[in-house]
Design a protein around this nucleic acid. Structure first.
Lengths: 172, 172
DNA sequence: CAGAATATTCGGTATATGCCGAATATGCTC
DNA sequence: GAGCATATTCGGCATATACCGAATATTCTG
């Protein structure tokens, strides 16, 4: 029997699958996150496999990825032997902050480093082309340095305060 | 002959390919963007294919994707017949803003809509489970509504002012 | 520390993706 | 609007990915 309540859930879970896809995760992972998001209590691998229809191995790897992105927490309960339980992180702003602080920040640093090295080389070179390249490298570097500051600030602000702050600084 | 200047360029282009990958674009697209970023003047499809080593068809589809993300502009020059030229958008904050305003905003709206519908259904349902689901749907909806405001504000602020604003609102 | 319960990893298969070259479509110029 | 130069689309091949079930590894309990 499929109730309205279940359909409502499914509707949201579909949207989560879609979002996962947009942000570069597998749709199945979005679905699994959704399943956990609505779960009454943390679920074991078997329960998740059962409820979602995916193989246990699929669920297992999904959990490890979702955990990397702080979308899911893994719990070991006392008296439950080796069995693990999984719980959705329901604060998505927290998830975003972690992502900014880890993934984006790392990416930005790699970029800044590459740009720094290129800048050093180009400062020592001459010719019109080197000069033009240097200018462009510096422009990119400025942007990335700003991005770095921004990311590290963002990852320390609660969502509501952030929204207020940004809106206050927005023209009209 | 491979000069230091060329190696410096390559270093940066590699980093751009890597970033493209992280953000869900093909590495080849990152490379092509990099090639355009450093190009002295806009390049034609043939020149890009030549310089990058990719087939012209690949470059063509790459350009249409990069254009969707506002990473590349397409120019038709007078007296050049059908030949098109491509130029990198070098202001990456502008690119990000466009992305927020279009892709993210759309995704957020889809989500808010799904959540709204689910909320409506759940408000009309009873039972413990419906009540719990309703609570969770509302939490998610609050976050997404904040995100919506945030995104639309962000896409109107220049990067330097934004950084300042956020840093000012950051504790310690 | 043996055994049972569970998690994780591995190998395989079906499907999707990246890229190519050839075929087709499009838009200038005269 | 014919002919030509160029862009875009299409079909195919090779590689990568998603998911599965079986095999292996891990961790708790007695």
């Amino acid at each position: 029997m499929t109730t309205d309540v279940e359909r409502a859930r499914e509707r949201v879970i579909d949207a989560l699958a879609r979002s996962a896809d947009i942000y570069g995760l597998k749709q199945s992972y979005g679905r699994l996150y959704g399943t956990l998001y609505f779960a009454e209590e943390p679920l074991s691998l078997d329960e998740l496999a059962e409820q979602s229809g995916y193989a246990k191995s699929t669920v297992s790897t999904a959990m490890s990825t979702l955990r990397r992105f702080h979308l899911v927490r893994r719990l070991s309960m006392p008296g439950e032997g080796k069995r693990a339980f999984f719980e959705a992180e329901r604060d998505l702003w927290r998830v975003s902050r972690e992502f900014l602080a880890q993934e984006v920040s790392r990416e930005v640093n790699v970029m800044v480093e590459a740009l720094g090295e290129a800048e050093a080389v180009l400062e020592g070179a001459d010719g019109e082309r080197a000069a033009r390249d240097l200018e462009r490298v510096r422009q990119l570097k400025r942007t990335y340095e700003h991005a770095d500051r921004l990311v590290s600030a963002l990852s320390r602000v609660p969502l509501d305060r952030l929204t207020d702050a940004v809106e206050r600084f927005t023209p009209e």
